[in-house]
Write a protein that binds this DNA or RNA. Sequence first.
DNA 1: TATTGTTATACTCTATAACTATA
DNA 2: TATAGTTATAGAGTATAACAATA
Lengths: 155, 155
Amino acid sequence: MTDGSAGHRPTERADLAAMIGPLGKALMNDELPILQRHGLSMWAYAVLSTLDRTPLRTQAALAQAIGADKTRIIATLDDLQDRGLIQREPDPEDRRARLLGLTAAGERLRDAAKRDIQRGEDENWLAHLPDDERDTFLRALATLAARARPDRDEP
Amino acid sequence: MTDGSAGHRPTERADLAAMIGPLGKALMNDELPILQRHGLSMWAYAVLSTLDRTPLRTQAALAQAIGADKTRIIATLDDLQDRGLIQREPDPEDRRARLLGLTAAGERLRDAAKRDIQRGEDENWLAHLPDDERDTFLRALATLAARARPDRDEP
DNA sequence: TATTGTTATACTCTATAACTATA
DNA sequence: TATAGTTATAGAGTATAACAATA
């Protein structure tokens, strides 16, 4: 018996959660000072990144997309708007809702921050994977991450 | 120009942190009800898992190994000891320190919990990866996770 | 005096609920 | 009345600092 299907030796691999949790924490720790240099909080960066991909029609949808409560992003949106990084105006067709989007300055800042962040990730993390594992790892990770998106319902 | 090395199209992949963060959260959400069925908190399970691999000589070392503050695990250790799941006795050679280890009951509980957790991870996550990506993903993840261990100093 | 473990306090973050305005 | 946004309050989780015991 060399596999662990029945015996007293239950663990051939570490739990995914036990590996991914601390890894996410370490990535955050790397990312924080970079964001700070660009004057962005983690939530602010999440907002800029999400609005880039999909301009949204309500703040609630944005909050759900980044896995936050509606109430948690308001101060962040206030600040981003004051700094001219996002557009945020009442929808003429339903003035309760706020149309959200990036300004040109917001796009530039997001691009600059993202470039620095991914450069750091390349150097500190991906560079330490064997060449023949890196692409597969990224592809598989993208698959799992898509499955974990906060706005998604499980099938 | 098809690569993003210089232009206005800076992002070919999502940030690692943006993928791994929500994924870790989703894994936690899956894991919590399983742990609850076994009467374990996340910290308690981290303690049992870590003591399994390496019996430790001080609580501070244990805290560091699981990325927690020394003060945060005390209530957890009290509870685990009361339930007979861990050993925790003053070191005869230095009675300030506490020798830590698992009891037989602690090992059994850890094994049972780990089996359920990994079964859930297999079904809900790894099963959705192509067969030829799964092993490479796990190997690469283990590499990065080892690099992210809380007790480690970066080279 | 320094170190291990413990307890007490303060602070941050997050979640819940109440309020305003539009519909 | 129902919904989008906002504000206010309460709670959980975490970090910091003081304390007791041993070396």
